[in-house]
Amino acid sequence: MPDPSRLFIRALSGIWGNGYWVTWHPSARYRLGDVGTAQGPGLVPISSLDEIGITSSQLAPTTRDELTWRTRGGVSVTYKAAGQAGGPFAALADAQAGALVEFSRENALLVAYRGLTEHRLADQPLLARELIERYWAGTWELDWCVISHLVTAKSGTVLLAGEKGALIEMRAQATLGEAPAALADLAAGVRGARSSGLELELLGKQVTPFFRVLRLRRRFIRGIEGVYGDVRTLRTSANRPPDVPTDVLEEIRESPDAALEFPDQPTSALGDGTA
């Protein structure tokens, strides 16, 4: 079977916007301002801006009700209302509401998120200066990334079929009242009653499906080193300038984007798609 990370990331890449990483594994939880390194197709947090002592404010969050995606022609959903009898349901009592999700092919995917909110860091000029100063001082590494944009969901469901004919029967919580009536309803107040043939099954709350990272721009660092020499060598040099040169700080203040970049998710780490 193809690598599930490859299937999942390729399916959802670009859905939220260009440059956003798809969280793998879907159960991973991130925080705005997390600092980490790219390993495989994901980010491994090692600290945070707060823990390092960097203060960065946030912009007002933006919200979106729901997001759903499913493999076209590969997923069917049958909904059941409370009190409805018969049909294809085997694990739900007549008095229970829920849904049956069936997959007609291997690797078919269903994703549903509810209660989405995006948070973003502000003060990029200040952040760019902080990162350059710490890199110059040797307390920030070039491969470190910061989560600058984070999408959270109050609840989410991710289902990936491991074989043709995979299925899951889902029970709606009594608090939902009416039966699920749309894909987005499968992201809120449901839990699995029975399943078979699934490669991946996530029914979770407070998940972080998408994020974007920034890091020091490689070209900018090469420009500094072209003038002043290798920064790592300068850190141990007896005649090393104690502070970041003024012309570098002025360039950052005028154009913080010159010092920061938003790298794409490293898809090369996903391999060739085979298990």
Rank of each mutant, 00 (worst) to 15 (best):
E163P: 00
Q58M: 14
A193Q: 00
L109I: 04
F103Y: 04
K164D: 08
R64F: 04
T71A: 05
R120E: 15
V101L: 13
G162M: 04
G40H: 09
S237T: 03
G19N: 06
Y135E: 11
A38Q: 13
A97Y: 13
A174L: 10
A179S: 15
G223T: 01
G189L: 00
A153S: 13
L49R: 00
E141N: 10
P41T: 03
S47R: 09
I9W: 05
E51Y: 05
P2Y: 00
W136H: 07
A60W: 04
D264W: 02
L186H: 07
P263F: 07
V207H: 07
P41R: 06
D3A: 02
G40C: 11
R105K: 15
L202N: 07
W69Q: 08
S268A: 15
P61H: 10
L110D: 06
G138E: 13
L159K: 03
L160A: 05
G271Q: 06
E254M: 04
T23R: 04
T246M: 03
G197M: 03
G73P: 07
Q265T: 11
E178C: 03
A153L: 09
S27V: 13
L7G: 01
G19M: 09
E201Y: 06
T152D: 12
A182G: 03
F211M: 12
G40V: 10
L234R: 15
Q96F: 12
A85Y: 02
N18C: 00
P4T: 00
L216D: 07
L216I: 04
A28S: 07
A82G: 15
A11W: 00
G189N: 11
T208Y: 07
M1D: 03
F8E: 06
A179W: 04
D272G: 09
E261Y: 03
G223Q: 13
G83P: 02
S57T: 09
A97C: 12
S148I: 03
W69F: 14
F210I: 06
A172H: 08
P245T: 06
P61R: 08
E51I: 08
G165D: 11
R240G: 10
F8Y: 11
A85W: 01
Q96P: 15
S155M: 05
A181L: 04
A269H: 13
G36C: 13
D243L: 08
D94C: 06
